[in-house]
Nucleic acid binder design. Structure first.
Lengths: 172, 172
DNA sequence: CTATTGCAGATAAACATTATCCACGATAAA
DNA sequence: TTTATCGTGGATAATGTTTATCTGCAATAG
């Protein structure tokens, strides 16, 4: 079982975007720089987040990304599913049917118990991720992490966030 | 997030082996046939299970595999970890350190909160899998599944299991 | 001795992930 | 209106992992 590296990038970016003020945005290039990531590839993941309506994007100069809703209403599950897809990790291939003894399909109406058990475990996984809000991640970071790191992070955000023309959607 | 197909094969094989009597064994080729799997590749997974001491193997003609302990003491977690490895799904690349602002390593002694949250979720996943015993899978199968399927499965096991020369380890 | 079976390693084929690039539409600022 | 910046989408390559096969070897029942 393995999660792609994009998950880590996506969560860090979302956490950073939680720090921008009002409806300001931050460019993808800034976030790529902040984490030492490939800018062109990071765009792919940010796009997934935008498609899932976790982020909003603004085109043009002074454009960039911002959270589409408050950090309290974004869970790690939202982000993980957006980046990794909503498919369960265990996919039942129904190999029990593939043997030389071919029974009628009616013999397999009951769902495979193995599949059920695996799905139940994944449900527990997702429930735990759903509990973890982006706002918790941020506030734990602010209280627990080394002050130098927090200061550097805040400075970076302050330096790179870009105010918008007022306009459009909802404002803080 | 994705689990390899080997997990499904491994669990089905283990469940089938739970049906063999005493210290009898079943050949890998028989199990491959039962599930329509590639025999040579299935061996790889069975080997993982043997290395993890979930299965025991017997060489030679009339050889094969059997459970290394009772089905009550084998959990789905045991099997998943044996086949997929013990690494957590989320691997923290510490990308928070990779930005242009290089802080001293002492600024990062506290573990990354994102990593902690992801690991916590995976802990819940593993706990759920640890609860699921192979014996539960088997007994639910026997009571819930279509009688035709159960009968066919039992017949297959009875036909392919092979008694051993008494000898060796522990007997039922 | 021989046939069957599991084991280890090399290797190939198929697929997924990671990464880069380019043409494009949007837009803020000059 | 022009220009430069930025996100979007698609094409494409580089890389790595999973899946699969094969071969030679050790074990062993008959």
């Amino acid at each position: 079982m393995k999660l792609g590296e994009g998950v880590e990038a996506a969560i860090h970016c979302a956490a950073m975007l939680a720090g921008v003020e009002g409806n300001s945005t931050m460019a993808a290039s800034a976030m790529a720089e902040a984490f030492g990531l490939s800018p062109s590839y990071l765009l792919k993941h940010l796009n997934m987040l935008t498609a899932a309506r976790i982020l909003e994007s603004v085109s043009g100069p002074a454009g960039g990304y911002r959270l589409a809703r408050s950090a309290e209403r974004i869970s790690l599950l939202d982000i993980v599913l957006a980046v990794e897809g909503r498919e369960p990790a265990f996919r039942c291939g129904e190999i029990r049917r593939n043997g030389p003894v071919r029974l009628d399909a009616s013999a397999y109406v009951k769902p495979c118990g193995i599949n059920a058990a695996m799905l139940k475990a994944e449900k527990a996984y997702r429930a735990a991720l759903a509990e973890a809000k982006l706002s918790d991640i941020v506030s734990e970071y602010v209280t627990d992490a080394d002050p130098r790191s927090v200061a550097a992070g805040c400075a970076f955000v302050a330096r790179h966030q870009r105010p918008q023309k007022s306009s459009s959607t909802k404002q803080a």
